[in-house]
């Protein structure tokens, strides 16, 4: 049953590429203030799930409901929906011809019609929040990957979205840059931001998520508290994935060995 505080809900959503069901009748919901981490093997459809949420990918069947409204009925409504969903991409996708500040104020200015001073004021606050106060006039190309991703987060937040979607936000980063981005995300989570995070950072998922979803071959295999998924997974596939992934991760980062 749909609940009052559901922000995002997938109902039997199917997405096909060629003949393959990348999403196979997926039911999925996120409520306000919740942090959901989606983990699973590469190519399992995790990213597609996010890209369907804001209709960057059209779905083949099923329904996606956002803030009580069905996504993608008309173009105009679709633009409205996207304004309220922030998205952060694996490859940052900052606009290289614009400065950091211009990247952040662009959408608030032209989409929401905010005045320059309002938009710039908020942008500066956001830059402070992601620890890049003095970077407003720099171009993205001069920033490290971690800095670019933090700007990308600020850019998404500038639209004051109701939900933040993160698509493997640290996968393209040098290992020593991962921490600074995760710290910003942790901070957002602590402030009650509704977040869906596709990630391979198990430690982040374990410590920040309210709920972890294990996704494989277009299905949600298992979903529950981090405690349950990481210490006591019910499904064989989850166990196999986690034992493999956690042992790999253990070599580089300290992580309490909870996998079976």
């Amino acid at each position: 049953m749909p609940r009052e505080d559901d922000v995002l809900e997938f109902r039997e959503v199917t997405k096909r590429f060629d003949q393959t069901n990348v999403l196979d009748r997926v039911d999925f919901r996120v409520c306000a203030g919740e942090v959901v981490c989606i983990v699973g093997p590469s190519g399992s459809g995790k990213s597609t799930l996010l890209r369907c949420a804001n209709a960057l990918e059209p779905i083949d069947s099923g329904t996606i409901v956002f803030n009580g409204r069905t996504v993608g009925r008309t173009k105009r409504k679709l633009y409205k929906v996207r304004q309220q969903m922030g998205m952060v991409f694996q490859n940052f996708e900052l606009f290289p011809h614009l400065t950091v500040l211009q990247n952040i104020v662009l959408a608030p200015r032209i989409v929401k019609g905010e005045t320059e001073s309002v938009a710039v004021g908020r942008a500066r606050n956001l830059l402070r929040r992601v620890g890049l106060d003095d970077f407003g006039n720099k171009y993205p190309g001069t920033l490290s990957g971690g800095q670019q991703q933090r700007v990308a987060i600020a850019r998404a937040l500038a639209m004051e979205p109701d939900i933040m979607l993160f698509d493997e936000p640290t996968s393209a980063l040098d290992p020593e840059r991962v921490g600074e981005v995760l710290a910003v995300m942790r901070d957002l989570a602590n402030q009650g931001t509704t977040m869906v995070v596709v990630t391979h950072e198990m430690e982040f998922a374990r410590s920040v998520a309210d709920r972890v979803v294990f996704f494989d071959r277009g299905h949600i295999v298992e979903s529950g508290t981090p405690e349950r998924i990481f210490t006591n997974p019910q499904q064989e596939r989850t166990r196999a994935f986690l034992s493999h992934h956690l042992s790999n991760v253990n070599g580089q980062r300290s992580f309490p060995g909870q996998a079976h």
Partner: peptide, 10 residues
């Protein structure tokens, strides 16, 4: 690039 812009509601 266009996906990022579309995702902002443009």
């Amino acid at each position: 690039q266009s996906n990022a812009a579309l995702a902002l509601g443009m």
